[in-house]
Amino acid sequence: MSKPFNMELLLSGVLTGSHATCQRHVRQSKVIQVEIAKRWQRATPWAWQRKHLIWFLEHHLSQRSEATQYYYTLTVRLLARRLGKPWVFNL
């Protein structure tokens, strides 16, 4: 039996700011992880491609407020930075 992926540990190197902000990014990254795993069967961020994150931002968040979309975009940018990818996500 394998351990579940620890998103907090992954993001710990790039998280800055207040405790509440860091917790929000961790919480949102877990939501992103679950949704991508359900749709694409990619369990860890190391297996993700840019198209998976674009899908999440465009389709999963399409009915959410602009503020929610903005905060998730910030989290996606942190994930891309942590993965060392040169991906650009526009708001």
Rank of each mutant, 00 (worst) to 15 (best):
R50E: 14
T21Q: 08
P45F: 11
L57W: 01
T21M: 11
T44W: 08
T16N: 15
E58H: 11
L78S: 00
W48N: 01
L9V: 08
A67V: 11
V76Y: 12
T44I: 14
L10C: 05
K51D: 12
M7F: 06
L91I: 06
N6Y: 05
I36W: 07
A47E: 13
L91N: 10
H19D: 14
Q23G: 05
V34D: 09
T16C: 15
V34Q: 12
A43W: 11
T16W: 15
T68E: 00
Q41A: 14
V34N: 09
E66S: 13
V14R: 01
R24V: 12
S18N: 10
V31K: 06
M1T: 05
K3S: 04
N90I: 07
S2G: 04
A80T: 01
P4R: 04
Y70A: 11
W40E: 12
L78T: 00
S62M: 12
P45L: 09
Q28V: 03
N6T: 04
Q49D: 08
I36S: 05
L61S: 01
A67G: 13
S65K: 06
R39P: 08
S62G: 00
R42T: 09
E8A: 10
K3I: 04
I54K: 14
V26H: 12
V34L: 08
F5C: 03
L10H: 05
K51C: 12
Q49A: 07
Y70N: 13
S18W: 12
K38W: 11
F5N: 03
L79M: 11
S12G: 08
P4W: 04
F5R: 01
W40Q: 09
W46Y: 13
R50K: 14
S2I: 03
